[in-house]
Design a binder for these strands. Structure first.
Length: 271
DNA sequence: ACTTCGACCTGTTGGC
DNA sequence: TGCCAACAGGTCGAAG
């Protein structure tokens, strides 16, 4: 489910309900996510106040004075805010309950997500310390991508999806931004010119920004039934459009597999 | 140091 | 209609 826009929308959605709220209980129904939810987490979190609701890449960070919850939604995770009396369903693995009688509930059918605890600076955590820049920050530039790609022979699409290069560019947006920039996803990262990177980087930023805005505008309330994430309502130019006509030239969109993930592109428009 | 590949899971979809 | 294989928005860590 979650690409960066949905993670950011989730962060914004839960924030007003949990910021400055005190944790009264923690329920772990199934600790077996990608990594086990630490057994100590309940003890650490109870009585703590959420001081900051942040994001780094696709990790959501809930800061308290005792430490930080590091949360990842994996492939199928979602967060909701409910009344604490709401019945937990099949894949609702984890709850944080607050003094305002609300619960932050994690649902994750595939259990590729994780809930971890960092005692000190979570940005120094093993999983976060080597992450690349945020795509929407100023440090993410064409020059940066050009420099860091000089010895990298991997396909540009795989390169873009590497979180150590840049965070938050998942399969949908890697495909869409390469189409927007007219770059063939199979080209080796080191063979792409600065000029092409100068075309690509603003596309990545624009597409992510637009999706986050749509996520925010379509998700009015994080309580109860959550609507479809914004990026589902936006038109995708290539992703999932195998054999359909290219919106530019009408030729058929091609699907291939790269690094075990589906790639979609137009062989005419993307060189 | 870089690249590839297996692994972790369940739910949904499409072809027969 | 039913069954089964293929596939799904992620990413780590081992092996090459």
């Amino acid at each position: 489910m979650p690409e960066l826009p949905e993670v950011e929308t989730s962060r914004r959605g839960i924030k007003p309900h949990i910021l400055n709220k005190k944790v009264t209980d923690v329920i772990i129904r199934n600790k077996n996510l990608r990594w086990p939810i630490p057994g100590s987490l309940k003890k650490q979190l109870i009585d703590q106040v959420i001081q900051k609701v942040d994001r780094r890449g696709k990790y959501i960070l809930l800061y308290t004075s005792a430490g930080t919850v590091i949360l990842h939604l994996g492939m199928s995770g979602s967060l909701r805010i409910l009344n604490k009396s709401a019945t937990a369903e099949k894949h609702d693995h984890f709850d944080i309950i607050f003094s305002n009688n609300k619960v932050l509930r994690l649902r994750d059918p595939r259990r590729f997500g994780c809930v971890l605890w960092a005692k000190s600076d979570p940005l120094k955590h093993k999983l976060l310390i080597n992450l690349g820049p945020e795509p929407l920050n100023d440090e993410f530039t064409a020059e940066y991508l050009f420099e860091i790609s000089r010895n990298r022979k991997v396909a540009i699409k795989t390169f873009l999806m590497n979180s150590h290069i840049v965070v938050g560019v998942g399969n949908i947006y890697a495909n869409e931004s390469l189409f927007a920039a007219g770059i063939n996803p199979k080209r080796a990262a080191h063979k792409i010119s600065l000029k092409s990177y100068q075309s690509l980087v603003p596309k990545i930023k624009a597409i992510l920004k637009k999706s986050i805005e749509q996520g925010g505008s379509t998700l009015k309330d994080f309580i109860n039934e959550d609507g479809k994430p914004g990026y589902f309502q936006q038109t995708l130019c290539v992703y999932g459009r195998d054999s359909e006509p290219c919106i530019n030239c009408g030729n058929s969109i091609k699907q291939i597999i790269q690094a075990q993930r589906s790639t979609y592109y137009c062989t005419t428009c993307q060189k």
